[in-house]
Design a protein around this nucleic acid. Structure first.
Lengths: 250, 250
DNA sequence: ATCATTTTCAATCATTTTTATTCAAAAACA
DNA sequence: TGTTTTTGAATAAAAATGATTGAAAATGAT
């Protein structure tokens, strides 16, 4: 029996069943154990099956990244609530921008809208969107190792190809005087560009970001609607004069 | 029996079956082994079948690629050797493009050169580069869920910001007549753009890619230097007339 | 848990099979 | 007739195979 035929036979076994024993294959092909082993090694290298002790198993088509699941499990109640609320603003056929950062990451699992297109500069975001079957585009740009975000002129340049219905941005500071701020000027440039290109921009932030200001100015408060989990009554009253605030847990 | 008749007979065998042995063909045609061998060589050159040890097999012109998950996580010795050889071409201060795909992924661990800048359209590649402390840029574009590559006009657009010293590309087929080919036209466009923007383009491929052709043409063979792990003597001789081949394990 | 037993594995080696190459004979052609 | 093309046999090289080995992994009993 030809090598090619054996390979074909082996793969056919795995179309029917989840796994196959070496002994079954020696019997079906008439080849020796050594030969079957070599075949299995070849086919594994080609990525067509997975070797297991005693035989071979099907390769699973869906590869769900466990780290992502773990990550989302680690979201606080506030982040999840804010994410769910933010996701509810996304409508069918929307084109949205989703900023890098954990706050915006929390909104992705709650997206229900059909047929949307999402652009993101977040590394994990890109994968999570694709895993959820959402058409996902990366902005391009340099991968900033610390935050796993694509930044710099490459990202801005990438953004300039698109126009958004909605944009969901994360920030580090929300301040009555300083407006929205973030430490890295490169990231600020990306956020500013996204803000400019969205009809409805949203800022996702948890309570810790309020009344903070960091190095680089992104925009004034009234440039976007703020979505948050739960904030103190006092803070809410203070900021809702400056812009619209959507609070998930009231 | 006429040469034409024999060819017809051989091809008919392959319509019925997945593969055919030389012995079956000598029996069916009455010709000697040598003659059948010559026939098979001719028919392979015409792209009508694929020679395998002991006979010939069908050419599968399937447009469906194995997904990244199906491709094995563990690199074969050949892939590693090819990766190491490819990495040795990267010099200090180079700007390189690294294509998506497992073959090119295998080169990243071996990069020794200092102060290089890498641009990639591979999702995993981006992370791996950043993990190794290499300044890494993503091209942007749509994330293709199956292969985890950024493709489409977004990726091409992203590429057009850069100019490379070297480019390392993966392909699905290397064929004397068809040149370099890949199933997805979108990906082909990205590869073509990268090829255009690199002073020294390299193609990384394992032995299985030779004499295969898939749907979309990328470039002719002489457009790049081929880097491979180990290929059969015959294959090497056949292709080294068409372009430069660097073989890691000789 | 630990230990002994059984099974499976990867690596090596000798053997067999297949291959490309060469060359001379046969066939086809002018 | 001579010339070219096709063919088949002989060969050494390359590839595939199957048996054997000690190591590794799974299994079962204690």
């Amino acid at each position: 029996m030809l090598t090619e035929e054996r390979h074909f036979t082996i793969l056919n076994f795995l179309k029917e069943k989840e796994a196959v024993k070496i002994h079954e294959l020696t019997e079906a092909t008439g080849a020796s154990e050594s030969t079957i082993r070599r075949d299995l090694t070849d086919l594994e290298d080609a990525g067509l099956l997975r070797r297991v002790h005693g035989g071979a198993a099907k390769v699973s088509r869906k590869r769900i990244e466990p780290t992502m699941g773990e990550k989302s499990a680690r979201f606080s109640e506030e982040k999840r609530a804010a994410g769910r609320l933010a996701a509810s603003f996304i409508e069918d056929d929307d084109c949205v921008f989703i900023d890098a950062g954990t706050t915006t990451l929390a909104l992705i699992p709650y997206i229900q809208a059909k047929n949307i297109v999402a652009v993101t500069n977040g590394f994990d975001h890109l994968r999570l969107l694709a895993e959820r079957g959402i058409q996902a585009y990366g902005t391009g740009g340099m991968l900033k190792p610390s935050t796993e975000a694509l930044t710099g002129t490459g990202a801005v340049h990438g953004l300039q190809q698109y126009w958004f219905d909605k944009a969901f941005l994360g920030v580090n500071g929300i301040h009555l005087k300083a407006g929205y701020t973030t430490p890295d000027p490169e990231e600020a440039a990306v956020k500013r560009e996204a803000l400019k290109r969205a009809q409805q921009p949203f800022i996702l932030a948890d309570a810790s970001k309020f009344q903070e200001s960091t190095f680089t100015h992104i925009a004034d408060l009234d440039a976007a609607v703020i979505i948050t989990g739960r904030i103190p009554e006092k803070t809410r009253r203070m900021f809702e004069e400056a812009t619209d605030i959507k609070e998930a847990l009231s």
